[in-house]
């Protein structure tokens, strides 16, 4: 992984702001674009975006911390989002969540120490007739259990060894 310097960040922020300058109310769009490019929103992004959009740092920080999608720390190579909404619960989602936590040895909203996997909960992926549902690196899966998650993880990590928690 490349080390992000403040100069790198500055360049990214400037490029992104330039691209979205003409859009109405661009802060959310700008932050989404920066996160798409950098993987997460380093706290150093906040003053840079604030200055580029002529907003206060509080405004930017407030938006970064309001939305579940924004992450201030680096994420795992694979992100697993498990649906915990009612329709998936009716199909046993809570058990899947518990099993996957055990499998990975991490909790909800945590990233494995080796940077392989991040685990998130989500309330509804719109796959409510084929629950339990999960989204892994942006791809939707239906009727999931511990084993399907493990299979997808193995293929998404492309042969990297996945250490199962004891």
């Amino acid at each position: 992984m490349t080390i992000q310097t403040t100069t790198d960040l500055q360049e990214v922020v400037e490029a992104v702001v330039r691209e979205h300058r003409d859009e109405r109310g661009p802060l959310l769009v700008v932050l989404q674009d920066i996160q798409r490019r950098m993987g997460h929103l380093d706290p150093d992004v906040v003053p840079l975006v604030a200055s580029a959009l002529n907003l206060s740092r509080a405004d930017v920080h407030g938006v970064v911390t309001f939305y579940h999608d924004f992450h201030e720390a680096p994420r795992g190579a694979v992100t697993i989002k498990l649906c915990r909404a009612e329709a998936c619960q009716s199909m046993g989602a809570e058990a899947v969540v518990a099993e996957v936590k055990d499998l990975l040895g991490i909790g909800i909203a945590e990233t494995a120490a080796d940077g392989s996997v991040s685990l998130d909960q989500v309330f509804c992926l719109g796959n409510c007739a084929l629950g339990p549902a999960a989204q892994i690196n942006g791809r939707l899966y239906g009727r999931v259990d511990r084993d399907t998650i493990l299979d997808v993880l193995r293929s998404d990590l492309q042969g990297e060894t996945l250490s199962e928690a004891p």
Partner: peptide
């Protein structure tokens, strides 16, 4: 922003 569980018609 079809966030309600059990709804997916918009999608």
């Amino acid at each position: 922003d079809e966030g309600d569980s059990g709804t997916f018609a918009d999608r």
